[in-house]
Amino acid sequence: MLTVQALESGYGAMQVLWHPELEIEKGSITSLLGPNGAGKSTLLETILGSVRPWGGQVLYENRDITFLSSHRKVEMGLALVPEGKHLFPNMTVYENLLMGAYLKKAYEHREESLDIVYTLFPRLKERSRQMAGLLSGGEQQMTTIGRALMTKPRLMMLDEPSQGLAPKLAAEVFETIEKLKSDIGLTILLVEQNADASLGAADYAYIMHEGKIKASGTPDEIKASREIREAFLGV
């Protein structure tokens, strides 16, 4: 569904991505692991185009989308749940969700998308009139995922969705991600610090380090390799 080849990008003169290669199977959850500063967030941002690619290629559903602008990619069904949520704090939960349906095609399907979001997160329906800035951390994360769902995505990239959440809430986030795959049929690319939970949900995993993919395999293979665990995951 998504193929990344020899991607390069960075900030200013500093190159962050050094030709990572990855392949994401349709209908799967792919976990991207690695230490802080490995370039995982930059990879997601570069795939979406909010960080401009310098070179390499991103193929999405067999189309070269490398240099398309972010809003074109969102229109094609690519969604990012960014690190740090990036909600609109002075808009209500409902208004935040509706902003997700900004693009024309998503707007036409806003009612059914809203049903999907409220079924997945009944809590958001109760909170729909509340300002997003006043929500708890867990509710904010639900809203961010809900807003991304409103764009009617086929591939959803999540950047550290369990960050800063209590263990119980973090577990709920992982359950949600599995539901996104099984109930809604999304393909997921998941960046996480929480390696164990992430591997628990994933079908396949990549290990990233210093802007490159250093290893890949099924979760069982990754868990079985002491070398990988010690070198890159610190567990």
Binding site: L48, S50, S69, S70, H71, V74, E75, A79, L80, V81, P82, K85, H86, L87, F88, P89, N90, M91, M99, G100, Y102, L103, A106, R147, A148, M150, T151
Partner: peptide
């Protein structure tokens, strides 16, 4: 208006607006 709401969302959080498919530039 649609354009007005796009503008408000960029004021509140430009990265958030971008992932909603808004042409921030």
């Amino acid at each position: 208006t649609r354009a007005g709401s796009a503008m408000r969302s960029v004021v509140e959080d430009s990265q958030g607006a971008r992932v909603c498919g808004i042409n921030v530039d």
